[in-house]
C-alpha cells in the first residue's frame, strides 16, 4: 500500500520541564489511524510519550485530544486526512482539564459532573423483585439509546464555554446522561431527576459546541432543550427557573394577545424592572436604546392565532 511520510508535532508536558513541542517523522498509509501513529511513535521513537488509548474503534472514549486544534478522538482521525499541505499534523491535550503528562489530562471534574445526575435507572420494586416484566416501545428505546451512546470521552465538556464560566452548570455530557433516564419509561424517579437537572439546563447558552465535537453524535444540547420541555412538571424554584417560567409565560401571553414575541416586553417581564433598567443604561451607553421603542404592531389575523393557542391548551 502506498505510504507517505508525515510529521507529527506533539505538545509534550511533564512536571519537571513544563510544556514543549516535539516533532516525529513516520510513514502512514491512507488507513492509518492517529492511535496507531501514536503507538508507533511510542514503540519505535519515543517510549516516554504518554497518551491514553484502548479500543481504537470509538467506543471507549480514551483517546480524546486536540488534533490541529479540534477536539477529536485520535482513533477516529485518519492521519493522512488530517495533515496539512506540508504533511504536518499538530497534536495536543484537551482544553479545560488540567494537564498531567503529554496528551494525558485529569478529567475527574468530568466524572464528578456525571455522578451528580444519579446516572442509573431506578426501576419499580416489583421489577427488581422479578415479579414484573418491563416493556418499552421500540421508539422509546431508540430515543433513550441516542442519549445513552455517550462514551465519557469528555470532549464536549472541554469545548463547552458555559462550563468554564459557571461552576453550577453540569455540562453537556451529564445532561445527556440525566435526560436519558428522564426519558426512559422504565424509570421511577422523574421528579428527583428534574430537581437535579432543571436549573442547570437553563445555564446552557445553546452554542452547539457539544453538538459539533461529539464523536458519537449524542447531541447533548438537544437533551438540554428536551429537559426544558419538562419545566411545567418541575416543582422547584431557583432564581434561574423562576426567570425561565416568567419567560415561558410571557412568550405564551404575548403570542395569545399580539400574535408575536415582542422582545422589549419579553425582556422586561423576564428579568424584571431593576435588571431591565441596568441593561437600559448599558444600552444608552452603546447607543442601542432606541431599538427598545421600535414600533412593533400586532399581527393582523388574531382570530386564527387565538384558535391555534386554544387548540394547544
Amino acid at each position: 500500500m502506498e505510504e507517505k511520510e508525515i510529521t507529527v508535532n506533539i505538545k509534550k508536558y511533564n512536571d519537571k520541564d513544563g510544556a514543549f513541542w516535539k516533532s516525529y517523522k513516520l510513514k502512514a498509509d491512507k488507513y492509518t489511524q492517529m492511535t496507531e501513529v501514536l503507538r508507533r511513535i511510542k514503540s519505535e521513537q519515543d517510549p516516554s510519550l504518554a497518551y491514553r488509548a484502548s479500543c481504537h474503534m470509538a467506543v471507549c472514549g480514551s483517546c480524546s485530544m486536540k488534533i490541529n486544534g479540534i477536539p477529536s478522538l485520535a482513533c477516529r482521525t485518519i492521519a493522512l486526512q488530517a495533515v496539512d499541505e506540508k504533511n504536518e499534523i499538530n497534536v495536543e491535550s484537551m482544553d479545560y482539564y488540567p494537564g498531567v503528562r503529554d496528551l494525558i489530562t485529569d478529567i475527574d471534574v468530568f466524572y464528578d459532573k456525571m455522578y451528580k445526575v444519579m446516572p442509573r435507572l431506578i426501576a419499580d420494586e416489583s421489577v427488581l423483585m422479578g415479579e414484573n416484566e418491563q416493556r418499552m416501545t421500540p421508539e422509546n428505546q431508540t430515543e433513550v439509546w441516542k442519549f445513552q451512546e455517550c462514551i465519557y470521552c469528555g470532549l464536549c465538556v472541554s469545548a463547552c464555554p458555559s462550563v468554564k464560566e459557571d461552576e453550577q452548570f453540569l455540562g453537556p455530557a451529564a445532561h445527556a446522561k440525566g435526560f436519558r433516564f428522564i426519558d426512559d419509561v422504565r424509570d421511577t424517579k422523574k421528579s428527583e431527576r428534574l430537581d437535579l437537572l432543571m436549573d442547570s439546563a437553563y445555564r446552557c447558552t445553546s452554542c452547539y459546541m457539544c453538538y459539533e465535537v461529539c464523536p458519537q453524535d449524542v447531541q447533548p444540547v438537544i437533551a438540554i432543550k428536551k429537559t426544558k420541555n419538562y419545566l411545567d412538571q418541575y416543582k422547584g424554584n431557583t432564581p434561574i427557573t423562576i426567570m425561565a417560567r416568567k419567560h415561558d409565560d410571557t412568550v405564551e401571553n404575548l403570542i395569545e394577545t399580539t400574535g408575536k414575541i415582542k422582545e422589549s416586553t419579553l425582556f422586561l417581564k423576564t428579568f424584571g424592572f431593576g435588571e431591565a433598567m441596568r441593561d437600559a443604561i448599558d444600552m444608552l451607553k452603546s447607543g442601542k436604546f432606541k431599538y427598545a421603542f421600535e414600533k412593533d404592531s400586532n399581527v393582523k389575523n388574531m382570530n386564527e392565532i387565538k384558535n391555534m393557542m386554544g387548540e394547544k391548551k
Binding site: 416493556r135 418499552m136 421500540p138 445513552q148 426512559d184
Partner: peptide, 20 residues
Amino acid sequence: EIVSLLDAWGAPFNRQPDGR
C-alpha cells in the same frame, strides 16, 4: 434471568413492536 436483571438495571435492549 440475567438479561432480565440487566434490563431492570437499565440496559436499553432493542425491542419488538410489543415492547418485549
